[in-house]
Design a protein around this nucleic acid. Structure first.
Lengths: 190, 190
DNA sequence: CAGGAATGCTAGCGCTGCTAGGATTCAGTC
DNA sequence: GACTGAATCCTAGCAGCGCTAGCATTCCTG
């Protein structure tokens, strides 16, 4: 019994090691540098070991993304808690969102841009994902008026996401990001 | 003189053939199916011929993207022209934008999502790109109030882009797309 | 101590983007 | 009309990719 428990513990530890290594490698050199060979070398195991933990490379990226959702949700929660009042929380949460994307571009990429198969708008989506959305919804709530809160939150989220991705891909100049964010907030604040 | 002219004509024709083949292959089977081998086979030349026209595969994708910008700009222009009045043009243009993304997902992908190096927010960006942005700006203009038109257009564009990409990647359920678009429009209409 | 399960490696498959080098075709010259 | 140089285009191959079959080895169990 105890032996098997120890083995499972070690397996879990190694799995965490793989995820961390993938994240570090991606953050240091971008996702194109995260190959199964380099990742295996970094965790000091052979390639096939990765496949005893994950179905394929995409599953490793999903695991990193899930970590990212937890981080993002935490930062939005902190931002909302630090807001001077409920009505101004939206600005704080919005700023936290874009700041997160700015600080963790590759993380944001795998969370929202890359084509990974991960359930999103369904019940079996990761808890961290729901938590993040709920934070956003709480912040939007005072400004909803008669609109459907869920849909309005999704729409505001889309606005943030659009600003973030277009800026990140150099489709929008980075310099005026703050002013665009303010414009978006003004349109969603009542 | 005339011989060289004929050669250049033939070269241009073949280049166009490559771009069209790449677009068709992508639209039929997705970008991951567009490999240099399959593309070469399709145009009935060997692989190296592709590299005598384009620096690398990314340059071919950029060429397809530029075609897409022209198409999108044209559809937005048509939508704005067909609008009953200037104030309601925004809704028509917005609908045209999301409809384009819906009908040409792989084209939209290479235009706005994939990391291709193409100048965007600078003067030497493709003319079709400027044209598209100007269409959008014209539609936004009646609702700008005291806000900077350029920045407001960029922000509205970000909203559309966010809705489109999050829906396309299944981050948002497709079903309520129309209602989210209406919410966005309501927030940007005065 | 023997048998069997679990573990992790080496080696390799079929694919990718891209390129070096040589064969072939073509245009202009004597 | 044969010769030369340039332009054209193909064959073959490199290094790297995600992924896996099959064999050693290690470890636990009876």
């Amino acid at each position: 019994m105890s032996i098997q428990a120890r083995r499972e513990r070690e397996r879990a530890k190694r799995e965490k090691l793989i995820i961390t290594a993938a994240r570090e490698l991606a953050e240091a050199e971008g996702w194109e540098a995260v190959t199964t060979r380099r990742l295996a070398e970094r965790v000091e195991y052979s390639q096939p070991v990765l496949y005893s933990h994950f179905k394929n490379k995409g599953a490793i990226m999903v695991a990193v993304a899930v970590e990212g959702f937890a981080d993002l949700a935490g930062e939005m929660r902190a931002a909302r808690a630090a807001a001077p009042d409920v009505r101004r929380a939206l600005a704080e949460v919005g700023a936290a969102y874009t700041a997160f994307a700015d600080r963790h571009p590759v993380l944001y990429d795998v969370m929202f841009n890359q084509a990974v198969d991960l359930p999103f708008a369904t019940a079996d989506a990761p808890a961290a994902l729901h938590a993040g959305f709920d934070e956003l919804a709480e912040a939007v709530s005072p400004h909803a008026g008669g609109d459907d809160l869920g849909l309005l939150t999704e729409t505001f989220w889309a606005g943030l996401h659009g600003l973030v991705t277009l800026t990140r891909g150099a489709r929008l100049p980075r310099e005026a990001h703050q002013r665009r964010l303010e414009l978006l907030l003004a349109r969603f604040t009542r």
